[in-house]
């Protein structure tokens, strides 16, 4: 087997954003299921939260290659 430790680090670092994305969309689905008319209010919030969580994951990915 070969590879660098960076990729192991990225694998570990991706756990957090993975859980975060799951939680965000779980809450979003819950909210829309309970109150479908709240969708337009919830959608931007969910997407911004997703963007922030995803940003961390991608940051980890890029740093795994750069460092």
């Amino acid at each position: 087997m070969e590879g660098t430790l960076n990729l192991v680090g990225f694998g570990l670092a991706a756990i957090g954003p993975g859980i975060a994305t799951g939680l965000i969309f779980a809450a979003y689905i819950n909210g829309v299921a309970r109150q479908p008319e709240a969708r337009s209010v919830l959608q931007p919030i969910a997407f911004l939260g997703f963007a922030l969580a995803e940003a961390l994951a991608l940051f980890g990915l890029v740093l795994a290659f750069v460092l």
Partner: peptide
Amino acid sequence: AIYLVWLRFGRE
């Protein structure tokens, strides 16, 4: 990129 996401999807 986050600013762009806010422009595209975050605004009402």
